[in-house]
């Protein structure tokens, strides 16, 4: 699999799998160039169509297996939105569902060997993270006006502590999009890099069995992480949305 290396030194490039290349040749990545990232983004769209649209085409009262999965995903996110944000958060359900399904499908597609993990790129997760942050902040001010700022004024705390808490709250609020996006990209990138490192060690006959077992184990872990990160991203989005809708502690 991996290239035999010259000079006896073990050489592998765990980060090369994340390189963005134009899909149809050439070296220049313009803003419009279809790249390998584009391909896997579009495959994520196809996966979502297959999961949510094709399976439900019969609209069966007694669902088929595929339709049950679609209904399960729907019910899972719907209930999450309802539980975390309350009834008035339901109207943002399609947006949250979009994020959840995109992250879930992109994560799982990235686990296919030789594929490209779009969600391992900070550019992708940052767009979503900051998108959520900006949308939620704007929504908070539109819905609550200036009283949205009471989110930072912890009225439950003793008065002398409140300014200090306000500063902490303010900082943590602005850190949100960063942690939100880096958490996802970091998890995906680290997992895939570790997989690649183990795969690289498989070149050495002595440790190959351990390396292969390691790859299998890490792969299993990555399947778990893929689903969990999609869930975490989604539920944090719900939590931020709840803060915007009900900023009062």
């Amino acid at each position: 699999m991996a290239e035999p290396t010259e000079g006896g030194g073990l050489e592998f490039y765990p980060m090369d799998q994340f390189i963005i290349k134009p899909l149809f040749g050439g070296d220049v990545v313009n803003w419009y160039t279809p790249t390998n990232s584009t391909l896997w983004l579009f495959l994520a769209i196809l996966a979502i169509i297959g999961l949510m649209v094709l399976t439900t085409s019969r609209r069966a009262i007694v669902p088929s297996r595929g339709q049950s999965i679609a209904e399960l995903a729907y019910g899972f996110v719907y209930k999450m939105v309802e539980d975390v944000t309350g009834k008035d958060g339901i109207k943002y359900f399609p947006y949250i569902m979009t994020l959840f399904l995109f992250i879930l499908c992109a994560n799982f597609l990235g686990l296919i060997p030789m594929s490209f993990t779009t969600t391992s790129h900070i550019a992708v997760t940052a767009v979503m993270g900051f998108g959520v942050f900006i949308a939620v902040t704007v929504l908070g001010f539109v819905k609550n006006g200036a009283s949205f700022l009471s989110l930072f004024w912890v009225s439950a705390a003793p008065l002398p502590l409140r300014p200090i808490l306000a500063i902490i709250e303010l900082i943590s609020y602005f850190v949100r999009p960063v942690s939100h996006s880096i958490r996802l990209a970091g998890n995906m990138m680290a997992g895939h890099a570790v997989l690649k490192v183990f795969a690289g060690f498989a070149q050495v006959a002595a440790v190959a069995p351990i390396a292969i077992i390691g790859v299998v184990a890490i792969y299993g872990l990555e399947v778990l992480v893929s689903a969990i990160q999609a869930y975490v991203f989604t539920i944090l989005t719900c939590v931020y949305l709840k803060d915007a809708l009900h900023p009062h502690h």
């Binding site: 963005i20 990545v29 313009n30 803003w31 419009y32 160039t33 279809p34 790249t35 990232s37 584009t38 983004l41 579009f42 994520a44 769209i45 979009t98 994020l99 995109f102 779009t118 790129h121 550019a123 992708v124 767009v127 979503m128």
Partner: peptide
């Protein structure tokens, strides 16, 4: 490039 295609995808 990534942002452009991601926005389209979303």
């Amino acid at each position: 490039n990534q942002i452009f295609w991601l926005v389209i995808t979303l």
